[in-house]
Computed example of a mutant assay.
Amino acid sequence: MHPHLHTESNKSCAEVIAALDECHAKGFLWKVTGNCTLAKHDVNMCLRGLRLERTRLNREEARKKREKIEKIWAEIEDPRERN
């Protein structure tokens, strides 16, 4: 299922999303003949860029949390390291 296009997180893609909406508003035959393909591709690439950035940030945050947890476990296993 596709994500909702008009959300707060997709504000940077608003221009290409609006272009796709305008293309779709031209009618069924306009879409069927492939006239909206480029607009759809542009939307997909913009959303992909946002997803990749979000994934990178999530990975960094998970790495920091993991390091913190490993440090806590190391202190639990060897109480002498607390000093």
Rank of each mutant, 00 (worst) to 15 (best):
A74H: 04
N10M: 05
C13A: 05
K71M: 04
L5G: 08
R80N: 06
D78E: 08
I72T: 12
H24C: 04
E81M: 08
P79C: 11
K40Y: 00
P3R: 15
H2C: 12
A18L: 07
R63E: 08
R66S: 11
K65E: 08
E15V: 13
I76D: 09
K31H: 04
E22F: 04
E70A: 12
W73T: 04
I17R: 03
K71T: 08
L5H: 08
R66G: 07
S9N: 15
R51C: 14
A18M: 07
R56E: 15
P79G: 11
T37R: 14
R48W: 04
H24A: 04
R51W: 15
D42F: 00
K26P: 02
S9T: 15
A14S: 14
D42M: 06
S9A: 15
R54M: 10
E77P: 01
E75K: 02
H6D: 12
G49K: 09
K26D: 06
K65L: 08
V43A: 04
R63Y: 09
N35G: 00
F28W: 02
C13T: 01
L50M: 14
L20D: 02
V16T: 03
L38F: 08
A62L: 03
T33L: 13
L57K: 10
L50D: 00
L57W: 03
E75R: 02
A74N: 08
A19W: 01
V43E: 01
A25F: 03
H4Q: 09
R80V: 07
C23W: 01
A39N: 13
N83C: 10
L5R: 06
C36A: 11
R51E: 11
T37P: 00
H4G: 09
E61W: 05
K26M: 07
N44K: 15
V32D: 12
E15M: 13
T33D: 08
I76T: 13
H24T: 03
K31P: 00
A25Y: 02
V32L: 13
V32G: 03
M1Y: 05
N83E: 14
L5N: 06
H24Q: 12
R82Y: 11
K71R: 04
R56H: 15
A18N: 09
L20N: 07
A19Y: 02
A39G: 09
K68A: 11
K71P: 01
V16Q: 00
D78R: 02
L5C: 09
K64A: 09
E60D: 04
A74Q: 07
H2N: 09
P79K: 09
E15N: 14
C13R: 00
H41Q: 13
C46G: 14
C46R: 15
T7E: 00
E60L: 02
C36H: 04
